[in-house]
């Protein structure tokens, strides 16, 4: 039988918060023991910086989902540096390598910035990427800072999407604006803005339906939601947050490109980093589109949210 006395214990254990960095590391550590990861071997042993070494590096980078294109670019860069700076051993190389990675990523930490007055965050992404959960996490964070947070249930499409938000808002004690399933998403957003204004809310977060970026009509619907929000809440500080699942491979690039083209993304939240996926795809995304990474998700609980820290991210990727 289960090691837990009852379901409630089990649920609680699932939600207890570990040291947040621990959690991220935990996940990444587990990858290390995985048969497919071997960055450690690669750098620890006294190896020659020869073709074989670079082949192995290629393998490691690609397996972190950094992507073929960006990996090749990086390796070409590194080869040039090795020659120019007369680097001879793996130890020296490791330093250059980490610098190189950081160059590809952003320099600053992520995080969201709220301004005085009404703030609005529209959250978008493909199906199941973690939009609703990330919204709950963000809301919980600001609620703890005594901000008045409201959520708009603009996923009027997926079965029980509204119920899912109801559970979260009840649990966290937040305001929710919702209509019934099937109603117009932009209309819900419009309602929510009115309501947020009249109640002097600090932060309104808009949950949208998951959609594949290739679904033209659904992307049009999203544009409409954005249009209505940006027109209606002119005075508000507005941001568009794209949720990317760290488990995703190269398709995340396509997601970022097309969502950005449609609604202009201000920032990215990378979810599910508590698993064994490394989320290296954000390096490729950053390389191709200059969108900052703001947040990372490291679990299903309301506290499993962290500010993106490029240094830590790189460290965790290859420590």
């Amino acid at each position: 039988m289960s090691i837990f006395k009852n379901v409630e214990d089990k649920k609680e254990a699932k939600e207890t918060e570990n040291g947040l960095f621990e959690k991220l590391k935990d996940g990444l550590n587990k990858t290390k023991s995985g048969i497919f990861s071997k960055i450690n071997d690669l750098f620890s042993k006294d190896k020659e910086l020869d073709d074989k070494f670079f082949d192995e590096l290629e393998e490691v980078l690609i397996q972190a989902d950094i992507g073929v294109h960006t990996t090749m670019k990086m390796i070409d860069d590194l080869k040039v540096k090795v020659k120019k700076e007369e680097i001879e051993n793996t130890e020296e190389f490791y330093k250059v390598f980490k610098e190189e990675l950081s160059e590809f990523l952003q320099e600053e930490k992520g995080g969201l910035i709220l301004k005085k007055g009404l703030n609005i965050i529209i959250v978008v992404g493909v199906n199941g990427s973690g939009k609703t959960t990330t919204i709950a996490k963000i809301a919980s964070k600001y609620k703890k800072q005594n901000k008045d947070v409201m959520i708009a249930a603009c996923d009027t499409f997926r079965a029980a999407a509204i119920d899912q938000l109801e559970v979260w808002t009840n649990r966290l004690g937040l305001r929710l604006v919702a209509q019934k399933e099937g109603s117009d998403a932009a209309a819900v957003a419009y309602d929510a803005i009115q309501s947020a204004r009249s109640k002097d809310v600090d932060l309104l977060i808009i949950d949208t339906a998951g959609r594949l970026h290739t679904q033209k009509n659904l992307m049009e619907e999203l544009k409409k939601v954005k249009r209505v929000v940006y027109k209606e809440a002119e005075e508000a500080h507005k941001q568009l947050l794209l949720i990317l699942d760290a488990t995703n491979g190269q398709n995340a690039i396509s997601q970022a490109k097309i969502f950005d083209k449609a609604v202009n993304i201000d920032g990215i939240a990378l979810t599910k980093l508590d698993g064994t996926a490394k989320g290296g795809i954000v390096i490729a995304v950053k390389d191709e589109l200059d969108i900052p990474i703001k947040l990372i998700g490291v679990g299903e609980g309301e506290n499993d949210l962290q500010v993106f820290d490029p240094e830590q991210f790189v460290e965790a990727l290859f420590s």
Partner: peptide, 12 residues
């Protein structure tokens, strides 16, 4: 399995 899964598909 989500068809968008990357390299991690093998671990999972």
């Amino acid at each position: 399995v989500d068809s968008m899964t990357g390299q991690d598909a093998v671990n999972v």
